[in-house]
Design a protein around this nucleic acid. Structure first.
Lengths: 131, 131
DNA sequence: AGTATATATAGTAATCATTCCTATTATTAT
DNA sequence: ATAATAATAGGAATGATTACTATATATACT
């Protein structure tokens, strides 16, 4: 007797992935994989770092989060809407801001015949805490 | 007899550093350290990768080049004047452009009381080669 | 509810970019 | 030419990320 199952891989529920999603959703601090890992261990002590990376990547693919790079290090952001970042060189904080880049988009399209998907802007400087 | 030399370390000439500087200056391709290394080996076969990294870092400090990050990978750019990048997701090319971000600078300063040092903007999309 | 099948995991090894270490070499002030 | 020390080559160490594999778990079908 032959049983045919679905050929294409479906995404299964996973307790680990849900935990990771919740952790990323719960903070505005743009956490690193390692921070998510240490947080996840509180509720799933045996979770492995590989699982965290695999699921962060998966969640990005499904549009549940976006990856941003702070220098060479990857950080994860639940906010998938277009926005920019202010990075304070004093405290290292990365703050979300929304600057109008619609002008930039159309400008680039006209001037350089470049079809824009995404504008990644990080502004480096000093935040108001350091005066 | 006691001889007193300069206390503070002065930068010495180095054939390797000059070669590295020339290589970075010679291209608009925003090369990686590894690319610079393989180029440098043509004229200095025994040059080591550590020397390349050390000098790229040094040249950044002296303002001879700037480091940009393409995702998590460091690339080096001889153009130290403020400018932005268009990254084509089809061919991976990184193109220099100058978009007016003066408005953004003053906007950020007013709205968020954030002292701006540098605006890092990369626009992801598709360049005119792919139509 | 029970079983079959495949996806997801934990744990660990491997990879890749980058930095660090150290004995030797090269630059430069004298 | 010499002394002092900055810079190098070569290799080891690090840190983030990915790959591998045997086991555990979710789920489609009975």
């Amino acid at each position: 007797m032959i049983t045919i199952y679905t050929i294409f891989s479906a995404m299964r529920f996973s307790h680990q992935r849900e935990t990771i999603r919740k952790i990323v959703n719960s903070t505005n601090s743009h956490p690193t994989a390692d921070w998510v890992f240490s947080r996840a261990k509180r509720s799933i002590p045996k979770i492995s770092l590989g699982t965290v990376y695999r699921n962060l990547k998966r969640l990005e693919k499904t549009g549940d989060l976006r990856t941003i790079y702070d220098g060479s290090i990857a950080r994860y952001d639940w906010n998938t809407k277009p926005h920019d970042h202010l990075k304070c060189k004093e405290c290292g904080d990365l703050m979300d801001v929304h600057l109008l880049d619609e002008g930039i988009r159309s400008d680039v399209k006209k001037k350089y015949k470049f079809a824009v998907d995404d504008v990644k802007m990080t502004i480096i400087g000093t935040c108001q805490k350091h005066k």
